[in-house]
Design a protein around this nucleic acid. Structure first.
Lengths: 221, 221, 221, 221
DNA sequence: GATGAATGAGTTTTCATTCAT
DNA sequence: AATGAATGAAAACTCATTCAT
């Protein structure tokens, strides 16, 4: 199965030129959001996309609609990375976890607003995608646990958290160095996942999945 | 030696009410910057601080002056945490590293814009503070290495990077959960610092210190 | 003679679907103009009519063309009401006047922009229609005067003014109540037309007909 | 007691220049609303008032706040006219009614959005003013009825309705002629209020006061 | 004949900054 | 020292109009 093209929609098919514009807007939005935050000027995004601001508004009726689509594309990329990790998990589950995280680092331009700490996505498509990611990672972790390759108290939330942390933009750091630092961090983190004489992990306050229970107006941490 | 109060300045002493206003402005700025980014509206910051916008301008002639002071206070907090880590490093250096990172997590409200990935601070005070942090951490790491308690290729940059990652705001996550997730992440990371059969770490492209060479207009990663 | 269908035109006959679209556009325009004024967004009118904005433009090359047609339809309705009033004037001229006014109230949805106080219509058709209305009303009034049923100084302008007043939209009032209030007002007004000890009416500054001399850019009263 | 200056407020006193600006904004808004409707461009209003658009926004946080104040001033003028009518009602109640209506006509520039058919005002001040008008007019009518000078079924609603009708702008008619036509209309209407062989008035659907029960989103008549 | 799409030119609203009190 | 007030400039958003399918 081919991966979904970022930004696919379910509505009526767009004319070719409109679809191209839409893709350019989303690409420009991803970059701008990483550089300037989700409050980035929309006309700057339109300018970078090479379209008129009104064209942007035709595709995305307000800022939130644009943010939501960008978030959704991020979820899709994470889901795809998790799916691939599961493919190679049987051979070497810990390597699969590391590849999963490094893949997220590689695609962090797309993962503008990923998961933990990003804007909440409550659209049906977003909830659906979020619901798919956890089981895939759980399955990867199950492989690792059955081999004794991983400390037992690690959960998919730890992986998602780590993905979120290492993908967040470091606006003042050249991409090359940002990637190197993230790669080193992932290496150490994954080594920390091995059982050995690992100390038990502290619990999280709520045992529910966090991602899907966020509220936009909650002051966060 | 008593720790510096955040926001101390070297200029003429302020009247009591003026000093109080200044402190309230800085506190409001920290919160606003975490929630809204460094482009947060200045009158919103003034409103939260309970002062008139013109009063804010009297204390900080432009946005950058305010950002710089907030960054500086962040550096001071990191330096203080590193100093304390060094005090306990002789007994258990790895525990000292973990306490260092967890202290940063606890103070992440103050560490608004810390270190890697934040705005560049080039004021003499900031450069001075940054220059103190690395040696302190190097000394902590030296203790650990001499005991064989840590993989040998870890550097102070890895610690600073990790501190930056786990302190960045997760605006949509309740503070309680954000802290819990960060704490788990730190635990795994620190366990990953142990030698054991640790794999060697990939190198960083430039061996220079990164923090002080950043430029605000560089497209980052 | 069958009454003219509102919005008939003299040009080439339209295809059935085109004619339907045109009628829907005019109906939507009437409603929108009453609710939002003649500056109502054209795409809102198109949306209400269920057609694309470009279709509206095909039928009416600019806003004024649409306004003019709506005004014209209003004049046609007034002319028709005056014609009917004249039919029954011989029996009871004052009752004919009241029926004339009440008919306008009933059709006020069509009389979007009627007569006094509305946009000026200078098209030949509009001028023609306006020129027909005054003589018809004069004839009705002549019947009344010859019977002594009306105070002598009432003119057709007073009737047209009253029609304009009672037909203007009351956007925040439920239609039911708006009609009731207008009906009561008409009753009192018509009773005020009786001779009895009626006081003479104050003169109007210009004795010319007012309607056709208006200019759109004149600041009005 | 001196009449309230239009636009008085209960908040903290404004600085002299700010108060002047505020008054100019309200005057410009009245004119613009009459000419262009309540959707008149706010920057046009600011321009006419000779202030920057941002100054307008400082005084009136959104369009509705401005509309509400203009409406409120209109109510105040009506209340004042009713109060004066009551003063002279004992001598000649019908003349008092006519003067009341003609005063409204004279002040129709202030009565931008009066009463029936205008935007709903639900602020405490507006409700209070509306609640004062009806009793004043009722008292005037009581004088007239006790003298047998008026048909018995006329209510204050009929007077308010008439005031609203004759004050509504006729944007395309020169002020001079608009006033003349309104004056003639008032004369006829007031003559229609005399008892004589007056026919009974049709009832209104709801016997409650209408003005204060309107809802802004109700499609009106 | 109808429509999806795009755009330039507004209009609304916000915000940084300065001034006078 | 602090504040109310004002403003220019920018950004969000809307709308009339045209074009290509």
């Amino acid at each position: 199965m081919a991966p979904r093209t970022p930004g696919d929609r379910t509505g009526p098919r767009l004319r070719a030129d409109a679809a191209r514009n839409r893709a350019q807007i989303l690409a420009a939005a991803r970059t701008a959001f990483r550089e300037l935050g989700t409050a980035a000027p929309l006309d700057e995004i339109a300018r970078r996309a090479g379209v008129n601001i009104a064209t942007l508004y035709r595709r995305f009726p307000d800022r939130d609609a644009l943010v939501q689509q960008v978030v959704l594309d991020g979820f899709a990329a994470v889901a795809e990375a998790a799916r691939r990790a599961l493919e190679t998990a049987p051979q070497d589950p810990l390597a699969a976890v590391e590849r999963f995280l490094l893949r997220l680092v590689d695609e962090r331009d797309t993962l503008v607003l990923p998961l933990i700490g990003g804007p909440v996505a409550t659209s049906p498509e977003a909830v659906d995608l979020q619901g798919r990611i956890a089981p895939l990672l759980d399955e990867v972790l199950a492989h690792a646990r059955s081999r004794g390759a991983i400390r037992p108290d690690v959960t998919h939330m730890d992986l998602i958290t780590t993905g979120a942390l290492v993908c967040r933009p470091m606006p003042y750091l050249p991409a090359e160095q940002a990637k190197a630092l993230a790669t080193r961090h992932v290496r150490i983190f994954v080594d920390g996942l091995r059982p050995g004489d690992a100390r038990p992990l502290p619990p999280t306050p709520a045992h529910q999945d966090i991602t899907v229970h966020l509220h936009p107006d909650t002051k966060g941490g």
